[in-house]
């Protein structure tokens, strides 16, 4: 019984460490936070952003695993929804950018003008797409 506990403790620790390294290496390398820090001219504060990532990952995981209740109701829903939406939106575009979707597309069809419209269309398409998905319950 005791040995089982020790073994599970080791497995849990190792699994957590590797999962964290993999998952968070991914969101850092994809460059969302560096881009945001640059756009807002707050690159002096990146250690705060790193702390936010550390706390977010650790606390979010605890909330998920232990099914913690946070009775914040509407305010909590809006806060979590809006900011996770911003994050996923940046993540999706960052992924498309890493895979060089837009440069290749633009070069293929020889698009010179209208790049802002392309970006806006992608944003609007994602918003409308997820709205439709949630309204019709396609999840």
């Amino acid at each position: 019984m005791f040995l089982n506990g020790v073994a599970m403790c080791i497995i849990g620790l190792c699994a957590g460490t590797m999962v964290a390294a993999g998952t968070f290496a991914f969101i850092v390398m994809i460059g969302i936070f560096t881009r945001m820090a640059d756009r807002t001219h707050t690159s002096a504060y990146i250690s705060i952003y790193e702390n936010a990532v550390i706390l977010g990952g650790a606390i979010g995981n605890i909330l998920f695993i232990y099914n913690v209740r946070l009775p914040l109701y509407g305010a909590g829903l809006v806060l979590f929804g809006a900011f996770s939406g911003i994050f996923v939106g940046s993540l999706a575009i960052a992924l498309a950018e890493v895979l060089k979707v837009f440069p290749i597309l633009v070069a293929r069809i020889k698009l010179i003008e209208g790049l802002p419209i392309l970006v806006l269309s992608v944003a609007a398409g994602k918003a409308v797409g997820s709205l439709i998905q949630f309204i019709f319950g396609w999840t």
């Binding site: 936070f33 504060y45 936010a52 977010g56 900011f83 996770s84």
Partner: peptide, 17 residues
């Protein structure tokens, strides 16, 4: 800073979940 930190915090929580 608060805005970007919130994105980082809630985004990371979302990612791990």
């Amino acid at each position: 800073v608060v805005f970007v930190s919130l994105v980082a915090f809630i985004g990371s929580a979302f990612t791990i979940m």
